[in-house]
């Protein structure tokens, strides 16, 4: 009885599709406007563009040095995510498999991190980064992002606790060292969590603005997300460039989303601990 598709369901479905359309109007408006001239936007704000002309896009690409900053975003995001996965899973192995007073203390010590917002730490962090000469460098930002390992750690620990130790013990008896046990046996078994951690942090690091804003600023090392901010300042009021620029800078994430939709929705919800 729950599964029958009636006329009422059809009406509901159409209502929902209309709602979806209304929901996505801002994005639709942005895309159609990117091909229009300003008088054309005025004539028909929601109509389709009269002609498809990519010259604005080309200008925007050059205006914000798109490919240079795309590379910086890819570089920073990839290395940060790898560090988060490696540091997080390794630390989780110690916390899950070695239970003594010290590891229990460390677990609670790491838990404090959930309560400390970046807002509370950013000012001293700014001074620390200045003293370490890491301000405005890619390495500095990667170092800060690597702290995401703490949140990965808790996801990993939960998963590891539920994992049987038989394989690890068998390997130990066969003479494998802890390093080999971890990398050859435990880490491959963590794949589902690793996927979640990687996806979640990829989205988070890629979209990060506040760290980039504070620690990279308007430099040559700015990430693509930062470059949106810089570009909006630079092309103030020139909508014909600003809108294509916004679309271009978001395109990588939209593609990522379309490719891995199911995993992203699942991963973001599981990874929601972080917030």
């Amino acid at each position: 009885m729950m599964r029958r598709y009636t006329a009422r369901t059809l009406v509901g479905e159409i209502t929902m599709l209309v709602l979806c359309a209304v929901f996505l109007i801002p994005i639709y408006f942005l895309v159609v406007s990117s091909f229009k001239t300003q008088p054309e936007i005025l004539r028909s704000p929601l109509g389709l563009p009269e002609s498809i002309d990519f010259s604005n896009y080309v200008e925007a690409l050059e205006g914000i040095n798109f490919f240079h900053h795309l590379w910086i975003s890819v570089y920073i995001t990839t290395i940060s995510v790898v560090l988060i996965v490696v540091f997080g899973s390794m630390a989780a192995y110690t916390i899950a498999r070695k239970t003594n007073r010290l590891t229990k203390f460390l677990r609670n010590y790491f838990l404090i991190g959930f309560m400390v917002p970046i807002q509370t730490t950013m000012l001293p962090l700014f001074l620390i980064m200045r003293n370490l000469d890491l301000l405005n460098t890619k390495q500095g930002l990667i170092f800060l992002h690597a702290n995401g390992a703490v949140f990965a750690l808790f996801l990993y620990t939960g998963f590891m606790r539920a994992m049987p130790r038989d394989l690890e013990e068998a390997a130990a008896i066969d003479g494998a060292g802890q390093f080999r046990i971890f990398w050859r046996i435990v880490f491959p078994l963590l794949k589902p969590v690793t996927a979640t951690v990687a996806i979640f942090n990829f989205v988070w690091v890629w979209n990060d603005f506040i760290l980039g804003f504070l620690f990279l600023g308007t430099t040559d090392n700015a990430t693509l997300t930062m470059q949106v901010y810089n570009g909006m300042g630079q092309f103030e009021n020139d909508w014909a460039i600003m809108i294509p620029m916004l679309i271009l800078t978001t395109l990588p994430m939209v593609i990522f989303f379309l490719l891995m939709q199911k995993r992203i929705i699942g991963g973001l919800v599981t990874g929601s601990l972080k917030g």
């Binding site: 560090l83 790491f110 404090i112 509370t120 730490t121 950013m122 390992a149 802890q178």
Partner: peptide, 25 residues
């Protein structure tokens, strides 16, 4: 030793990025 080495990177980064600035604040 391996267990210590495993936890060290996360511990160092976290202490510098979160705990130290928290105390400083």
């Amino acid at each position: 030793v391996p267990f210590t080495v495993f936890i060290l990177p996360a511990l160092i980064v976290y202490s510098i990025v979160v705990i130290l600035p928290l105390i400083q604040t």
